[in-house]
Design a protein around this nucleic acid. Structure first.
Lengths: 144, 144
DNA sequence: AAGTATTAGTTGATTTTGTAACTAACAACC
DNA sequence: GGTTGTTAGTTACAAAATCAACTAATACTT
């Protein structure tokens, strides 16, 4: 590729991680977007509630490392679609406990199965040990 | 963390990759953003030109897997900052050859050193073998 | 108990991205 | 050689993300 400089952008971790992240989530994006009209933050909120049951907006934001305005708008969108319901905490009325409705739960269950299939397809591209190393390192990088 | 569901979002590759990509590029983003007022696509274009010398907008888009409108705007911004110059190809006047100016090159050189340091700091979090496995798998995922 | 500070969440303005329609230059076909 | 199709790049408009200012509720402080 006739480089005039020996820096290898393809191996620069922040760039490489972004490329891999984008490429490997493209097809999954299409599923929640085209099939359910959801945005990225919306499926993340849906998944957090599906997995953990009940959370506040703040807790979701902390876990997903997303800004509260993004969460707020995603929650409003999911509520509009009747995927979740809010309940003010009586002991602290600033806080609202978020929980999936039956409809939201069924959508979550469908998407979770898609996610499982999708993840398997990606994992099939590597050996079990490679997959473990990859996950371990990605977790480490996520925390740093 | 009292899950009511056994799906592990933290291990779902598209999510994990995104979290790792975001976390591990955060501090580098600050450098090109705060120090040079550049956007993500802008430093990518700068790096491509720094590494390969002369490219067209289309070639950069293909390499970086970015849409042509993003490239077009990044090129206009870099040109406005006098980091690059354009030259119409005489044999095909639709195409413009892009090349860094002396100023652009010096900014590239500085940022490349930052990138090297930054990448080393990230790589120091893992063994040499782990780093190689990580890069290999990320490259594989980028292409799929 | 009043005043100040903090916290959870929302809203509005600005910036950035994505999508689609466009211009200009070239290619191919009849 | 004129019509049709394609390609490189730009522009205009819509969707989304970011940032700052805001409301409402609670906590601290004196």
């Amino acid at each position: 590729m006739s480089e005039k400089d020996d820096f290898d952008l393809q191996l620069f971790l922040p760039y490489l991680l972004n490329q891999a992240a984008e490429a490997s989530s493209l097809a999954f994006n299409q599923i929640y977007k085209n099939r359910y009209g959801m945005l990225r933050t919306e499926w993340r909120v849906l998944f957090h509630l599906g997995i953990y049951g009940t959370l506040t907006a703040k807790e979701i934001g902390a876990r997903a490392k997303s800004h509260k305005t993004k969460i707020s708008r995603a929650v409003a969108a999911l509520e509009g679609r009747r995927y979740l319901k809010r309940a003010r905490r009586e002991n602290d009325r600033r806080v609202e406990a978020l929980e999936l409705t039956a409809l939201g739960t069924s959508v979550y269950n469908e998407l979770r199965e898609e996610a499982r299939r999708y993840d398997s397809a990606l994992s099939d591209q590597m050996s079990a040990e490679e997959r473990d190393v990859l996950r371990k390192l990605l977790l480490r990088l996520s925390r740093s």
